[in-house]
Computed example of a mutant assay.
Amino acid sequence: MIQSMTGYGKHVLQLPSKKITIELKSLNSKNLDLNARIPQSYREKELELRKKIAAVLLRGKVDFSLNLEITGQDTTVEVNAGVVKKYMSQLREIASGDETKLLEMALRMPDTLKTDKDDIDPEEYRAIETALEEALKAISAFRTEEGKVLEVDFNQRLSSLESLLESVKVMDQERLETIRERLEKAVADLKVELDENRFEQELIYYLEKYDITEEKVRLANHLDYFRTTMNSADSNGKKLGFISQEIGREINTIGSKANYAPMQQLVVQMKDELEKIKEQMLNVL
């Protein structure tokens, strides 16, 4: 089973006097790159929340936001009038406009609200932890669904590579015979006396340099290993990346040894399929 690094998860929690919204968005990245937006009152819990997210998401460029909206009558939050007035004064210097609009702009600025409550309510924080767990479940489910789409595409590409490899195997004997005939004709055109036994030995040695038996076997094994790894219990994006590199190495070697235009055309098609796998591989967890 593979998972995508692309995902989205959201959970909204309604408390007696607050509405708490937790959002998680993720894109592909080599490692975990976590960007957190948390209210000042919960900054002391940021490290703990980051650890919970990292334990589940593992890799990806992740945006985490925790938003608090006061919905009840009782609130310790007050407008920081001095800060708001300062913002409005500066805005008037930049551009003239309706006072109401200036006020709306000023209230969106940092530190326009202040609170006297410094201690975090334990019950409220437990509720936030629960909401985060639900959001993590949602984004994990999203990643799994995206991973299924990638898996279908990978299986199609692997089947195409296996089909092309079969074509290479069928063509291989014809290729060697064509190379042999070409060499014999080139020597015959020289019109020189040759020791037939020595010539045959040199010809066999030369053809062995173009033998791709090992490459064909290794490539087939790598394709099987890719599929086995893809169907394992965990998503192994990095491991699949390493396997795809080995697949590319065998394809390149077959291409360099081919010395036969029809087979090199097959190699170009194999490279094209592998390149598409590598592009999708960037998004696998």
Score class of each variant (00 low, 15 high):
residue 94 I to T: 09
residue 181 E to Y: 08
residue 137 K to G: 03
residue 169 K to H: 06
residue 151 E to G: 04
residue 231 N to P: 08
residue 200 E to D: 13
residue 84 V to M: 05
residue 97 G to N: 12
residue 218 R to V: 09
residue 48 E to G: 09
residue 162 E to K: 13
residue 217 V to K: 15
residue 67 N to K: 13
residue 105 M to C: 10
residue 127 A to T: 00
residue 202 E to N: 14
residue 248 G to Q: 07
residue 109 M to W: 12
residue 199 F to S: 08
residue 130 T to L: 08
residue 202 E to C: 06
residue 210 Y to N: 15
residue 235 S to M: 05
residue 64 F to A: 06
residue 181 E to G: 13
residue 69 E to L: 11
residue 163 S to K: 15
residue 220 A to P: 15
residue 255 G to D: 03
residue 88 M to G: 04
residue 208 E to Q: 09
residue 103 L to F: 09
residue 214 E to Y: 12
residue 153 D to I: 00
residue 262 P to I: 07
residue 79 V to A: 10
residue 143 R to W: 03
residue 87 Y to E: 08
residue 220 A to K: 14
residue 249 R to W: 08
residue 108 R to Q: 15
residue 66 L to F: 03
residue 281 M to I: 00
residue 23 E to N: 14
residue 1 M to G: 03
residue 102 L to D: 08
residue 277 I to V: 06
residue 113 L to V: 06
residue 49 L to W: 00
residue 245 Q to T: 05
residue 141 A to Q: 14
residue 157 R to V: 00
residue 212 I to G: 15
residue 140 S to K: 05
residue 221 N to E: 09
residue 20 I to R: 05
residue 54 A to C: 02
residue 7 G to W: 03
residue 246 E to Y: 03
residue 110 P to H: 11
residue 210 Y to G: 15
residue 84 V to L: 08
residue 253 T to A: 10
residue 51 K to F: 01
residue 253 T to G: 12
residue 99 E to H: 04
residue 97 G to S: 12
residue 201 Q to S: 12
residue 266 L to H: 11
residue 190 L to Q: 09
residue 75 T to E: 04
residue 76 T to K: 10
residue 188 A to E: 12
residue 76 T to E: 12
residue 17 S to F: 00
residue 186 A to Y: 06
residue 186 A to H: 05
residue 241 G to F: 00
residue 153 D to S: 10
